[in-house]
Amino acid sequence: MSEHEILTWIHNTPLGVATRDIIWLFPTFETLHFIGLCILLGAMLIVDLRLLGRFRSIPPAKVLVFSHVAAIGLAINVVSGVGFFAADPFNYWSNPAFQIKALLLVFAFANIAWFELGARKRILALPAGQDTDVVTKVTGAISLTLWFTILIIGRLLPNWEGAGGFF
């Protein structure tokens, strides 16, 4: 399947058709996307501040429950985001802001994977009252930077519409 065929197929999925045809659906997805990002960033702020060494009296293992809250926010935004994309796949695909955002999301998911596979065990073993090590601090800083950058790029999407992509 060519790129054009794949985008056409996405365009014609029931989700794409519905998001274009039902007048209130796109604005509803937008609103959900905003609410979802507040949940995601609010929860990640708490998790990442602990990784950065704040809230030391709380064992890191406990603070990690906020990553479940963040996952709910992320799920809301993935669903609404897929809705946006299905409604107008050609426009998003060729938008440089979308391309950067997609790349940063790959980094963010890689950061989550790295955390789940490697860093989590080390952090869980960390007792309350102790500072985190440098690697953990870097993980937290990268996570916070990535999510806020993704928010900024996302807000710039409409401004770069039709600008022509990088590839």
Partner: peptide
């Protein structure tokens, strides 16, 4: 300005909801 507004929203509402 719209970017600042989105970041501010995430901080106010994010901290509030948590």
């Amino acid at each position: 300005l719209l970017c600042m507004h989105a970041i501010g929203m995430s901080l106010v509402v994010g901290c509030g909801l948590m």
